[in-house]
Computed example of a mutant assay.
Amino acid sequence: MTTLRQSHFGESLQFINQHRSRHTSSCTVLVTGATAGIGKAVAEYLLASSAQHLLVLTGRNEDVLHEFRSRYPDRVITEAGDMSDLQFVRSIAQSIQLEGRLDGLVLNHGTMGSCFRIGQMEVEDWEETFRVNVTSCVALIQSALPLLRASQGRIVFTSSGAATNGYSAWGAYGASKAAINHLTLTLKNEEPEVTTVSIRPGVVDTAMQGDIREKFLKNMDEKDQVKFSTAKKDGKLLPPNKPGEVIAELAINADEGLSGMFLSWDDPKLAQYRSG
Rank of each mutant, 00 (worst) to 15 (best):
L4T: 04
A207L: 07
D74H: 14
E127A: 13
K215Y: 02
T2V: 14
I155T: 10
S25Q: 14
D205A: 15
M121K: 04
P201K: 02
F9R: 09
A172G: 05
I96H: 10
K177R: 07
V156F: 12
T35D: 02
K223Y: 08
T3D: 10
L217H: 05
R117W: 04
A207F: 00
L217S: 08
S95T: 07
G10Q: 01
S50P: 14
R90L: 08
G174W: 07
E99V: 13
A175G: 10
V29Q: 00
G276L: 10
D234G: 02
L107P: 05
V89E: 06
E99H: 14
S84W: 03
N219W: 07
A251T: 09
L13K: 04
K233I: 12
D211S: 13
T230L: 08
V132W: 04
P239V: 13
V29P: 08
H19K: 03
V89L: 14
K232M: 10
P146C: 01
S229K: 04
S264F: 11
A139C: 07
L102Q: 08
S49Q: 13
S70F: 09
E245V: 11
G260C: 05
R131L: 04
N181L: 12
D103E: 06
T32S: 14
Y273Q: 14
E62R: 15
E62K: 10
T129Y: 06
G10W: 09
E44P: 02
T28Y: 04
C27N: 13
A48N: 14
C137M: 09
D211G: 03
F216L: 05
G257D: 14
V106D: 04
L47S: 11
F130T: 13
L238D: 03
L147M: 11
L13F: 07
S259L: 06
G104V: 09
H8S: 10
A36M: 09
R75A: 05
F116S: 04
C27H: 14
E44A: 08
K40Q: 12
P146Q: 02
G153F: 04
A80N: 05
R5F: 11
G161H: 03
S176N: 05
S198M: 05
A251G: 06
D224V: 00
G33Q: 11
M112P: 10
A163G: 07
L183P: 05
A150S: 15
I118C: 13
V138E: 00
G113K: 03
G166S: 15
S143Y: 00
A169G: 09
Q52R: 08
H53Q: 07
R75C: 08
F9Q: 08
S91V: 01
I141P: 03
D63M: 06
S7T: 15
L250N: 12
R200M: 10
M121L: 15
R22F: 11
M261Q: 15
Q94K: 13
S70C: 12
G210F: 05
C115G: 02
A144D: 00
E191T: 10
A41L: 11
I252T: 13
V76L: 12
K269P: 02
G161L: 06
N181V: 14
I141D: 07
L187T: 00
V246M: 07
W170E: 03
E245Y: 01
C137W: 00
K215H: 03
I118N: 09
S25D: 14
L13Y: 11
K227P: 01
G235L: 08
E62P: 01
T158P: 04
L187K: 06
I199E: 11
T78N: 01
D266I: 00
M261G: 01
R213M: 15
A80W: 03
A178N: 07
S25W: 01
V132A: 08
G37W: 08
